[in-house]
């Protein structure tokens, strides 16, 4: 299964894109593992995952049409 994942902040800067497609994932844990494989520097960033506009904790199931976003902390003021 492929899910579209929106990226924010420094994650979008690293990926040079505000959205990526991630294949072969059924849970948020799979998703995090896959994006970290795709972009190794994501490992060092403490981002949170939102599914259908809700920030979720680890291990949530996801399906194809879910709206997924990865949010790192912002620092600027």
């Amino acid at each position: 299964m492929t899910v579209k994942t929106n990226l924010f902040g420094v994650l979008a800067d690293i990926a040079e894109s505000s959205a990526i497609e991630v294949e072969g994932v059924t849970t948020t844990n799979d998703l995090v593992r896959e994006v970290q494989k795709k972009f190794p520097s994501f490992h060092r960033i403490n981002f949170v995952v939102s599914v259908n506009r809700r920030v979720v904790s680890a291990g949530e199931n996801i399906s194809e049409n879910d709206e997924i976003a990865l949010l790192p902390p912002f620092s600027g003021g």
Partner: peptide
């Protein structure tokens, strides 16, 4: 949202990343 602060060097502030004046 973010239980612990980020690792050094992973998140930049305005001085490092730049910012469009209207955004803040």
């Amino acid at each position: 949202l973010f239980p612990e602060p980020p690792e050094p060097g992973t998140v930049q502030n305005c001085a490092e990343a730049g910012v469009l004046g209207v955004l803040p």
